[in-house]
Write a protein that binds this DNA or RNA. Sequence first.
DNA 1: TTCACTTACAACTATTCAGTTGGAAACATC
DNA 2: GATGTTTCCAACTGAATAGTTGTAAGTGAA
Lengths: 194, 194
Amino acid sequence: MAWDTERTKRLLLDAATAEFSAHGLAGARIDRIAASAGVNKERIYQYFGKKDELFATVLGTRLRAMMDEVPMTGEGPEAAGDYAGRLFDHHLADTTIPRLVFWEGLERGAAATDAARVAYHDAKVQRFQELLPGVDRAMAGEILLTIVTLVNAWPVLAHLDGYLVGASAGRTAERRAFIVKTTVAIARAALPGG
Amino acid sequence: MAWDTERTKRLLLDAATAEFSAHGLAGARIDRIAASAGVNKERIYQYFGKKDELFATVLGTRLRAMMDEVPMTGEGPEAAGDYAGRLFDHHLADTTIPRLVFWEGLERGAAATDAARVAYHDAKVQRFQELLPGVDRAMAGEILLTIVTLVNAWPVLAHLDGYLVGASAGRTAERRAFIVKTTVAIARAALPGG
DNA sequence: TTCACTTACAACTATTCAGTTGGAAACATC
DNA sequence: GATGTTTCCAACTGAATAGTTGTAAGTGAA
């Protein structure tokens, strides 16, 4: 039998991503990750180190992967709204990132200042600022944080939505439209002379 | 020695609140709750049942308490903004509720349809609707969800804020002002003829 | 005082879980 | 094909950890 180290690593990382997304750091089970990947758990310790190191690897890998999946295009408030909508769609189709982001906030608190992470978010804010000419960096970050908060929280707070608005056909599309509309309004108000 | 059942229950509930807020359901330790309360852990099972039942009790108790602590007063978009601001202040001073709400969303998913809980949120939406005459229930819920999302996510996603906007003196006040302003704008736009 | 009930705790059980070890099979290189 | 290295797993270890039990002591009512 031929060894395929990369495949083994990928299997483990994928399984770990699913496990951490579902249960967080404390709730995740190393045995479950290994079983789900069909690989002996000893491999995890060889390739990724301890549990929390694996968690950090998972989060970093995922965020870096998302970088290109939802690009910012166009210009003006409508472009900002369009970006919010596409981000909403992405996080709805795959709730991994929203869940990991909130797990991180809750379990790890102020995340370690990872250089790659800082650069990633910085580039994102800069690009967003280009979307809204005349808006300063702080306000661009403020608006972006608002968008990110709303679209990431949606899959996580589905139960609250059920309580406050109630389940209905097309509820998701409704929420999406509201977030897009709100984003456009916020962006417009932030523009010079808005 | 005279038994003081209520005091014992309160000690346990307070300790459990702190523990669950800090570590969530999976991360919380029954032994730690008992030790922190200075009470034998067997009492927990007698008074509150299993771990997840205790969690539900903690969350319900806290939410009900908050109802009175941050009342909705006045009328119109400014009143909505004022409510958002006071909610922000409350959750900033005590991050218990934001954390518990997100723990619930992540760990328990769609929460059990607790009758008291349904009634609580229903009353909240109804009261909010009175704040904005002419706005229907669905839109009132939509706006309320947006407010609740933004003010609850703030203490949990502090690390993201650091990445996107950056730490600075008065950053918190800045974010608060932005959320209040946004809330007023959203509420105004939702009013008939807005 | 007696009896039924409640409060409380120390000690226990049975299980789960992160992390390790020893060794076997596959591979690479000379 | 001999030698050293890498991949892999079954089985193990030791530490928690949720939940229980046995018992003693306090309470209240007859």
